[in-house]
């Protein structure tokens, strides 16, 4: 039976490092994805992940369990991302992963998708990343938390320290700017299956 986060947290607080490492294993990828999408740089996102877990480990005795462990981690990671953006004093750069091989992508997508479709998909991914880069940090973070991490409006409001209505406004404004960007690039139809 798989231990819950809460159980692992209790064991970790009792000094069981292995339990904490299980939490790391469980959450490192979502935290990395969050940091990567907010910061836009692979290496810095890795640093954020490392710092997040180090901070969490050190602050574990102070974790009272008022929030979910994952929310607590998200908060630490977002604070680190914010620090990073402030320190660098620049908007995040969104780097596309290097060495993307269309042929490799083709093998992942299966025979139903043509090379043209794959190239188009890669190009669309780049355009989306560019559009996200244009957004203010608050809007981008709200969209990332909602779209990729499935947080509720209230959870995002708690993490961002703002009213629930502000979260909705940020999402609306962010999506609208993104929509214009995509339209300006000739992108209107997508087939990734996401929708209301």
């Amino acid at each position: 039976m798989v231990a819950t986060d809460e159980e692992l947290v209790v064991k970790s607080m009792a000094g069981d490092v292995e339990s904490f490492n299980q939490l790391v294993l469980r959450w490192e990828r979502p935290i990395y994805a969050l940091a990567y999408r907010v910061i836009g740089r692979d290496e810095d996102a890795r640093d954020v992940v490392q710092q997040t877990f180090l901070r969490a480990f050190r602050a574990l005795p102070g974790f009272k369990g008022q929030a979910k462990f994952s929310s607590w981690l998200y908060r630490i990671a977002l604070n680190l991302c914010r620090d990073w953006i402030r320190r660098k004093k620049r908007t995040p750069l969104v780097e596309m992963p290097e060495g993307i091989d269309v042929v490799e992508l083709a093998s992942e997508q299966g025979p139903a998708e043509s090379i043209e479709d794959l190239v188009a998909r890669q190009e669309m991914s780049r355009i989306v990343a560019e559009g996200m880069k244009k957004l203010p940090e608050e809007q981008r973070t709200a969209i990332v938390l909602k779209e990729y991490h499935g947080l509720t409006f209230q959870e995002i409001a708690d993490l961002q320290g703002c009213p629930l209505s502000t979260v909705k406004t940020r999402l609306y404004q962010g999506l609208t700017v993104l929509r214009r960007h995509l339209e300006s690039q000739g992108m209107t139809k997508f087939e990734s299956g996401k929708g209301p």
Partner: peptide, 28 residues
């Protein structure tokens, strides 16, 4: 507008972070 925003959300699904090896561990 709802249709366009829905399509924008679909577009977001195309953006994935790189598949990297992480393997962080806390070691005493």
């Amino acid at each position: 507008e709802v249709t366009a925003l829905g399509e924008t959300r679909s577009g977001l699904g195309l953006w994935a972070p790189p598949d990297v090896e992480l393997d962080f561990q806390i070691v005493k």
